[in-house]
């Protein structure tokens, strides 16, 4: 009995408390930088596409909403097309975790409603940004042992030159 009256009184006192609701369209809630929202494809510091079309993100995606095709130019791999169907994406971030080159990243933007479902299919043009996203200094080709124009084998960071097999001969 007393407990019930106390509950009533405490609830009544809540009249003077601040409301916790954030009135969304007028007040945007502050989103942390690692919020999982709209997906982008980033570029490395040299302005080249980071994605090497390894397909790991497409494999990791639990709802199979990424589709891409590899193309090659001067030893660099890049996606010919890269398509994310956002009407299926569940914003789990698995693609970002699986990406070996930090190319695919989720951003704190969730306002992507559309009236037509096909408009939610984003092509590479829509996904690719001109910046580096969350990792300003990382460049995959500078640390990987792949040969590209202007960087031969063995010239990457913390990579020793390839061993001349002839010196190993007895």
């Amino acid at each position: 009995m007393f407990g019930i009256l106390r509950t009533l009184w405490l609830t009544f006192l809540h009249m003077a408390h601040r409301r916790v609701t954030v009135g969304y369209p007028e007040h945007k809630p502050p989103l942390p930088p690692r919020y999982r929202g709209r997906i982008i494809l980033s570029r490395d510091p040299d302005g080249m596409e980071r994605c090497v079309a390894c397909n790991l993100c497409a494999v990791a995606c639990p709802v199979d909403c990424i589709s891409l095709q590899k193309a090659e130019q001067d030893g660099r791999w890049y996606p010919d097309y890269f398509r994310i169907n956002f009407s299926r994406c569940i914003f789990c971030g698995m693609c970002e975790e699986s990406c070996p080159t930090y190319a695919i990243q989720l951003t704190p933007d969730f306002e992507m409603s559309e009236y037509l479902r096909p408009n939610l299919v984003y092509e590479k043009d829509d996904l690719l940004i001109s910046g580096t996203g969350k990792y300003p200094d990382y460049s995959f080709y500078h640390v990987a042992g792949v040969k590209i124009p202007g960087k031969d084998k063995g010239e990457a960071e913390r990579e020793s030159p390839p061993i001349d097999l002839h010196t190993l001969l007895p």
Partner: peptide, 8 residues
Amino acid sequence: LGLWQDRY
């Protein structure tokens, strides 16, 4: 109800 439950 909103007032007493800290919402709008």
